[in-house]
C-alpha cells in the first residue's frame, strides 16, 4: 500500500488499518463459501457417475458394450439389451422437437413482433403456466383426450395421406411412439417458447429499425435481421427443450405403449430408457435385473451429456464470428 503518497497529513493513523483488515476477512469467508458451492456441483456429478457405475457393474461385466446393441429384454431369462430403449428415447425426443420447435418459434416471433401489445404478456403468461403442470397430469390428459383423438382422427388421416411411407403404416393401437412424441412436444413447447421469446426481446431495436429502414417488411426484418441476431440463443432454447424431452418419464410411460421393440411405424408402441426404469425399478427381483436398470440409467446419463456437449459445440460454432449474437443466452 502506498499510503505515504496520500495527502492526508492531519488524519489519525489508528482507525483506517483496522477497517481494511476486516473487509479482507469478510471477502475471504465469502469467497470460500462460493467456491465450496461451485465445487459441490462437479463433485455431486462425479459421485452420481460413480454410483451409477458401481450399481451397474454386475451388468457391465456380464453384457459389456453389447448391452447397447442387444434388443432382447427378458428379466426371467436374465437377458438384457437396451437398443430399443435408446432408439425410443432418441426418436421420441427428436419427433417432439420437430413438432415443438416450429410451433414455439412461431409463437415467440408472433408475441415479440406481431401481436398487439395488450395481448403479448397474457399469452406468454398462459404458455409459461403450461410448464407448471405436473407431468402425470399431462399423462392422464394424454390417455383420456389426446390418444382417443389421435386414434380416431389424426392417425387414420396420416395413414390415408402418408401411408406410402413406412412410418405411417400398420395397425393403430393408440398408445404409440407418435402419441408420446406429441405429448412431449406439448410439454417442451413452453420452455422453448419462453426462452426464445426472451432471446428475441433482447434483440436491440436498432437491428429491427436497420432492416425496416432498408425497406424490409416486418416478416423480412424477422427473417433477415432479428432471428439471425438471436440464433445462438434460439439454439440454446431448442437444446433446453431437447434435454427435457430426453429425460421426461411419467407422461411418456403412460402414452408410449411400453413395448420393447424397434418398429418403423410411428403408430407402433415403443419404450424409452426413463420409462423402463420407472416401470421396473420397484419390481426388480434379481440383482442382475437391478444392475441392468442401473446400466440403462448410466447410458441415459451418458447420452444426455453427449447430446448437450454436441449442442454446446454447435452454439459455439454458430456464434463464432458473431460476438453480438453470441450473447443471446
Amino acid at each position: 500500500m502506498a499510503t505515504s503518497s496520500l495527502p492526508t497529513p492531519e488524519a489519525p493513523a489508528t482507525a483506517p488499518p483496522a477497517s481494511l483488515v476486516g473487509a479482507q476477512h469478510g471477502d475471504r469467508v465469502f469467497r470460500l463459501l462460493l467456491t465450496t458451492a461451485a465445487l459441490a456441483i462437479p463433485l455431486l456429478m462425479g459421485f452420481l457417475v460413480y454410483e451409477l457405475y458401481t450399481g451397474s457393474a454386475l451388468a457391465i461385466d456380464r453384457y459389456g458394450l453389447g448391452f447397447v446393441t442387444g434388443s432382447t429384454w427378458d428379466p426371467v431369462a436374465e437377458e438384457f439389451g437396451a437398443a430399443p430403449l435408446i432408439f425410443g428415447t432418441l426418436l421420441s425426443a427428436v419427433l417432439a422437437l420437430l413438432i415443438a420447435v416450429p410451433l414455439s418459434l412461431g409463437v415467440a416471433i408472433f408475441l415479440t413482433e406481431f401481436a398487439p401489445r395488450w395481448l403479448r404478456q397474457p399469452v406468454a403468461f398462459v404458455i409459461e403456466l403450461l410448464a407448471a403442470i405436473p407431468s402425470v397430469v399431462y399423462g392422464l390428459w394424454g390417455i383420456f383426450v389426446l390418444v382417443p383423438l389421435l386414434k380416431k382422427v389424426v392417425f387414420p388421416f396420416l395413414r390415408d395421406t402418408l401411408g406410402f411411407l413406412p412410418f405411417f403404416q400398420g395397425p393403430i393401437y393408440g398408445p404409440s411412439m407418435l402419441a408420446a412424441s406429441v405429448i412431449l412436444a406439448i410439454m417442451v413447447m413452453p420452455f422453448i417458447m419462453s426462452v426464445a421469446r426472451e432471446v428475441l426481446l433482447a434483440v436491440p431495436n436498432s437491428q429491427r429499425e436497420a432492416a425496416l429502414a432498408l425497406g424490409a417488411t416486418r416478416w423480412e426484418a424477422v427473417t433477415s435481421a432479428i432471428v439471425p441476431y438471436a440464433r445462438s440463443g434460439i439454439i440454446g432454447a431448442v437444446i433446453l427443450g431437447l434435454g427435457r424431452a430426453l429425460g421426461e418419464t411419467m407422461a411418456v410411460t403412460m402414452l408410449i405403449g411400453n413395448r420393447h421393440e424397434i418398429a418403423a411405424s410411428l403408430f407402433a408402441p415403443g419404450y424409452t430408457m426413463a420409462a423402463v426404469i420407472a416401470n421396473e425399478f420397484s419390481g426388480a427381483g434379481t440383482d442382475i435385473h437391478f444392475a441392468a436398470l442401473t446400466y440403462v440409467a448410466l447410458v441415459l446419463f451418458v447420452i444426455t451429456v453427449l447430446v448437450n456437449a454436441a449442442a454446446r459445440l454447435l452454439i459455439w460454432r454458430v456464434s463464432r464470428g458473431a460476438p453480438a449474437g453470441g450473447t443471446g443466452l
Binding site: S206, A213, L214, A216, T217, Y229, G325
Partner: peptide
C-alpha cells in the same frame, strides 16, 4: 412504406451492421 424506404434510405446514430452477416 416499404417502397418509400427504398427511395429514402436512413443511417442511424449508432452503427447497426447485421452482426451475423
Amino acid at each position: 412504406p416499404m417502397q418509400l424506404r427504398r427511395r429514402i434510405g436512413m443511417v442511424f446514430q449508432k452503427p447497426t451492421p447485421f452482426p451475423t452477416m
